[in-house]
Design a protein around this nucleic acid. Structure first.
Length: 963
RNA sequence: GGGUGAUUAGCUCAGUUGGCUAGAGCGUUCGCUUGACGUGCGAAAGGUCACAGGUUCGAGUCCUGUAUCACCCACCA
């Protein structure tokens, strides 16, 4: 491929066919003229000398500060710290960027200038991102860093587009988690929550919250997030609480919240119920015991198998499949439960799997969900034998008080002794565990509050037909829809103290339940009973579900609510799609009659270098603050946004961050170069206007970089609009370093006139704008060094300017670049020191005039002494050669040439070329291809073929000349 | 049991609607005080795009199957 779609020149430059040589130039005339074979040894000895030179001692040790350099210079404080301050002379810009001293100052500055506060836009467009409120339980981790980076990236992009932008911050009270850490904290002082009592416990929880809220918010700021802090919310703010109460009461009145007795997931350690989503299943190998149950008054028996023999104390039936022929004679009989000798019925139920085990199932309604369902179908007895504490209950008789495990052992042993134990086998099955503390859960029969999901799900499905909800990546749409189609009721009560207390009140006289937004003292029904509020609190996610509208003042009809609901994009990790995203969607649909956002962007999970999930509880993972301290927030942000793809997990290594820190520093130095060479700094607009007028008169490289800049503007804008952050970042990176720095700055050095200075400035300012959403700190800092009006954060996003595009020129300049690389190749191959100038002869054939126009660039960048450019010709001296796009490039090296090696090199190239041409020809002779492929493809292949043939021809010519 | 994702250079990953003699960063090798930057510069080596079929003029990209890994949902004792 010649020039790529984007017109990038980097690809062709890396081609293998182009061979060797060293570096570039400056204006000083060449000094060392005698071309001599430079041996590797000679090079080494020089290196050794350098290390021992006095100057070397001044170099910074690796990993130490950047302060000293090879050329020690007097530095001001600002200088040495890598920051730019008002009144600082430009020449004082430090050699390396030091984020630590810049970030805090800039952040403060942004806030002082109210730049994070939404400002009405001319277009009326708005962009709203609700933050996923971090828990007030601890410190920022990389998961947070991830979403903060992406959300802020979008926010800053849209703010620069001129939209009225709101990034709404806040924190979550995080019920169980917070209660757990507060209890742990109290335990250190030897206190328990029971000792303290509810009120005092809540006091210390609030204290905890105050402290950690401040910490976490501060950490959020460290990432550079441009949240509107004036609108910050906490899920237990009075306003939020009001919203929660209203939602609860409304849903209750509509019959969508109910209270019922049900077998729920109980965590004996947390002492609360959990919703199905908060249960993790983990595989475990246990013993499955088979027990013989005898039929009453007969010697017939049935064998049942179980992994939980201790629950047999609560058995109230044995179930068989109605069609199971083996057990026909047992239908209608009763069995004697061993140990207790209780009489239990045999029931028939289709839930039984005939093919599993013996085909007979013990039924323990109080401790198994399937059994509980059978209990309801068959009107059985229900006996609970395990208590809230996870120990055997009083109903377990002599086993009461034992742990479940102990009881299991004892009962198994007892069954063995009485001869009812038939078999024990290893069995692998899934065990339910608490998402928070990993304790084994017990199904527990109790009265709880539930949200009736079916009607809400259907309402949501309807709404989603009217409004499009876009998922990025789109595969999550299916996951989302499947869940909606297969919902279960949501258990929302929690036996905790920290959270929104359920607004339900019970009468101590008539047992009536009053559900009310405001406290009720006396029973409205019997008029005499006093009311006591339900002690339980709501699932944390209940309040999070209201986040998109409760944060804006709902249920009040506030201006904010009108303006900023619905939000634009909800960005979060795919792991909380059901916990949070789903619930926001159906709650918002129900109460706002509009989806809460139009797009759901789901990022992957951040993992460590080994691919392990970052988890602070396990002590794995990098601390974002440490990373920021060492490499800067910008470097961290880059590492979490460039090269990533939505929905896919990211591995983060310090090496990656370091690389990005290096990039940030590169940007700093490119700016530094420009600052040092600029006499005056005009605004982007002024420069752009000037360049637009002069465009046609500009040099080819100048037109090239301007064209590429326009293309970058277009690409980055498109990519960011379509949530392709990784892609946008990658191209910008390549443009910044690989094109602007590596080529344009080097070319500009050869002729620093007013035009080139204008272009350097224009490109840099544009680049700073394009980079700003990714790396806000350094870009803002550099922006200020160019004396631009207003801050970068609120500058206008650039627009691609058609008057600054010259597409044809991209092709032309590529030749020049390829020639430079080709010559450098030759030099490197022959170990010519970079600073030594060499003579070069180019037979450029059809490109002669064009190449001549690039002579000075080639000469400068490839360090050429005398550059001879001719249409064609013969060689006077022995030379090494290189073929660049059909142009013959020779570097005379009399006496130092291994002719055989040269021949082999050319022959290899000829062979490769020949093959490639053959395959192209085959393709272009293929009737199917000619008739079915798009014309543009055929045309470009034809052109390609012609070009390649020319290259082949010249390669052969070269081979002859050398021989 | 159902579903999803991953599998591309030594490592970590890109690769938008199929047109690619397959790219980046790190690492490796060689050479550099080249006055923006050694947190740098120049050059190079390195890939049967997991495997097997298929669709297509053309497949890293689409389809089917297989393997391995990861995850999600449901949980049958």
């Amino acid at each position: 491929m010649a020039t790529s779609k984007t017109g990038k020149i980097s690809k062709p430059l890396k081609k293998k066919q182009i061979a060797s040589a060293p570096a570039k130039t400056n204006k000083t005339p060449a000094s060392g003229k005698k071309v001599a074979g430079m041996t590797p040894l000679a090079g080494k000895s020089i290196e050794i000398m350098q290390k021992n030179s006095p100057e070397a001692a001044l170099r910074p040790e690796p990993g130490k500060s950047q302060r000293s350099g090879a050329r020690p210079a007097q530095k001001t404080a600002a200088h040495s710290k890598g920051i730019i301050q008002k009144g600082t002379k430009k020449s004082d810009m430090a050699r390396a960027y030091d984020p630590a001293h810049v970030e805090t100052r800039l952040y403060k500055n942004w806030i002082e200038n109210d730049t994070f506060v939404p400002r009405p836009s001319k277009s009326g467009k708005r962009f709203v991102v609700p933050i996923p409120p971090p828990n007030v339980t601890g410190n920022l981790h990389l998961g947070h860093a991830m979403f903060l980076t992406l959300q802020d990236l979008m926010t800053r992009f849209h703010r620069m587009l001129g939209e009225e932008t709101l990034y709404l911050p806040g924190t979550d009270h995080a019920g169980i988690s917070t209660q757990m850490v507060v209890e742990k904290h109290l335990a250190k002082e030897g206190k328990t929550r029971e000792q303290l009592g509810r009120e005092k416990f809540l006091d210390s929880a609030w204290q905890w919250k105050e402290k950690y809220r401040d910490i976490i918010l501060d950490q959020i700021r460290r990432m550079g997030t441009s949240c509107d802090w004036s609108r910050e919310r906490f899920t237990m703010d009075p306003g939020m609480n009001r919203a929660v109460r209203k939602v609860f009461v409304d849903l209750y009145n509509e019959g969508l919240i109910y209270r019922d007795k049900y077998l729920v997931n109980w965590c004996p350690r947390c002492k609360t119920v959990l919703s199905d989503l908060e249960v993790n299943y983990k595989e475990e190998t246990t013993k499955m015991v088979s027990i013989r149950y005898f039929v009453k008054a007969a010697d017939k028996s049935i064998i049942v198998s179980t992994v939980r023999p201790e629950t047999m104390l609560g058995d109230t039936a044995v179930a068989l499949h109605p069609d199971d022929k083996r057990y026909k004679e047992f239908h209608g009989k009763t069995l004697i439960l061993p140990i207790l000798n209780r009489e239990i019925p045999i029931i028939l139920d289709e839930a039984v799997d005939m093919n599993f085990g013996s085909g007979a199932v013990k039924v323990t309604p109080a401790h198994d969900l399937t059994d509980y369902e059978m209990y309801k179908r068959h009107h059985l007895e229900i006996i609970s034998v395990i208590g809230k504490d996870g120990k055997m209950a009083r109903s377990a008789g002599k086993y009461a008080g034992l742990s479940v495990e102990q009881a299991r052992e004892n009962i198994t042993e007892y069954l063995r002794n009485i001869g009812n134990l038939e078999d024990i086998q290893e069995y692998v099955h899934n065990v339910a565990r608490c998402e928070r503390c990993d304790t084994k859960l017990e199904p527990y029969l109790s009265e709880q509050w539930f949200v009736r999901m079916r009607p809400l799900a259907e309402e949501t499905l309807d709404q989603m037909k009217k409004e499009k909800l876009t998922f990025v990546p789109d595969r999550f749409e299916k996951v989302f829809m499947d869940w909606l189609h297969n919902v279960h009721d949501w258990c929302i009560s929690r036996q905790l103290w920290w959270g929104h207390q359920i607004p339900a009140y019970y009468c101590d006289q008539c047992a009536d339940i009053v559900v009310s937004e405001d406290p009720v003292q006396t029973c409205p029904k019997c008029k005499k009973g006093s009311l006591r509020q339900d002690e339980d609190v709501l699932d944390t996610w209940f309040s999070s579900a209201l986040w998109p509208f409760s944060t804006l003042g709902w249920p009040l009809k506030t201006e904010d609510l009108q303006k900023f609901y619905p939000a634009s994009v909800l960005e979060t990790g795919y792991d909380i799609i059901f916990f949070w995203v789903m619930r926001m969607v159906f709650m918002s649909t129900h109460f706002m009659k509009k989806l809460p956002f139009h797009t759901v962007y789901l990022h992957g999970l951040v993992r460590d270098e080994q691919g392990r999930k970052m988890s602070k509880s396990k002590g794995i993972g990098l601390d974002p603050l440490e990373v920021i301290k060492k490499y800067g927030a910008d470097a961290l942000r880059l590492s979490l946004s460039v090269g990533i793809t939505p929905g896919n997990d990211v591995r983060l290594s310090l090496g990656k961050v370091e690389g990005n820190r290096n990039f940030v520093n590169k940007l700093w130095n490119a700016s530094r170069f420009i600052v040092l060479n600029l006499e005056k700094t005009d605004t982007v607009l002024e420069v752009e206007t000037r360049l637009t007028k002069r465009f046609k008169n500009l040099s080819s490289p100048s037109r090239w970089i301007l064209t590429r800049t326009q293309q970058m503007i277009q690409k980055v804008t498109d990519d960011l609009s379509q949530y392709r952050f990784g892609e946008a970042g990658t191209s910008l990176y390549e443009y910044t370093w690989g094109e602007f720095c590596d080529w344009y700055i080097e070319i500009a050095k050869t002729d620093l006139n007013d035009d080139t200075k204008d272009i350097l400035l224009y490109c840099m300012l544009t680049m700073l704008k394009l980079w700003h959403p990714f790396i806000p700190f350094i870009t803002e800092e550099l922006w200020s060094s160019f004396d631009q009006p207003s801050q970068l954060i609120i500058a206008d996003w650039p627009m691609s300017n058609k008057a600054l595009i010259d597409a044809k020129n991209l092709e032309d300049i590529r030749l020049a670049f390829d020639l430079v690389t080709g010559i450098r190749n030759l030099r490197a191959e022959k170990n010519i020191e970079p600073h030594r100038r060499v003579p070069i002869v180019i037979f450029a054939h059809a490109n002669t005039d064009l190449v001549k126009s690039y002579a000075s660039i080639i000469q400068a960048l490839a360090k050429v002494e005398t550059l001879t450019i001719q249409k064609e010709g013969t060689l006077k001296e022995q030379s090494v050669s290189q073929n660049v796009e059909g142009m013959e490039v020779y570097m005379p090296l009399a006496g130092l040439i291994d002719l055989e090696a040269e021949r082999k090199k050319l022959q290899a190239e000829i062979e490769q070329k020949t093959k490639f041409i053959a395959s192209l020809e085959r393709k272009l002779k293929n009737e199917d291809f000619l008739s079915k492929a798009p014309k543009a493809i055929i045309e470009s292949d034809r052109a390609r073929l012609a070009k390649e043939k020319e290259v082949l021809r010249t390669l052969k010519v070269q081979l002859e000349k050398i021989s």
